[in-house]
Design a protein around this nucleic acid. Structure first.
Length: 117
DNA sequence: GCCGTGACGATTC
DNA sequence: CGAATCGCCACGG
């Protein structure tokens, strides 16, 4: 919905449906892959709005079909488990999708990092 | 229209 | 390499 024409025009108002745009883009992340806040913000036309993207994720209602668990930091670090409702919750979801983690407990970005066109 | 806030990012110490 | 700081942008009050 409201999917802006892919004709390479992301100049839409960053305000208004920024949240919705983030959710829509996050929903395009293929299963078994993860993306970063900065990547989404960049795809939206605001490379510096990584924080705002994370904010939208936090505001994402659980009933939403948005796989916010597939969105991680650029470093591969996951979001605060407590924010997800419990420790290891996000990690379990990602593992369930086939995502692997390194000894640091971070997502293997070099193999699962996916950036929206 | 200004201030504060925040699931980030990159740089500096 | 780890911690701390500044900068970024959007939203709420």
């Amino acid at each position: 919905m409201r999917q802006t024409p892919p004709s390479g025009d992301n100049h839409v108002r960053t305000t208004d449906a920024f949240f919705g745009r983030v959710w829509s883009l996050a929903a395009t992340v293929p299963r078994g892959k993860v993306t970063t806040y900065g990547a989404i913000a960049r795809a939206l036309g605001s490379p510096g709005a990584a924080r705002t993207v994370g904010w939208a994720m936090r505001a994402t209602p659980a009933e939403s079909s948005v796989p916010c668990h597939r969105v991680v930091k650029m470093t591969g670090e996951l979001s605060p488990e407590e924010t997800f409702g419990g420790p290891g919750v996000q990690r379990s979801l990602l593992e369930s999708e086939g995502v692997t983690f390194d000894a640091q407990g971070c997502v293997d970005m070099k193999h699962h990092l996916w950036i929206p066109a």
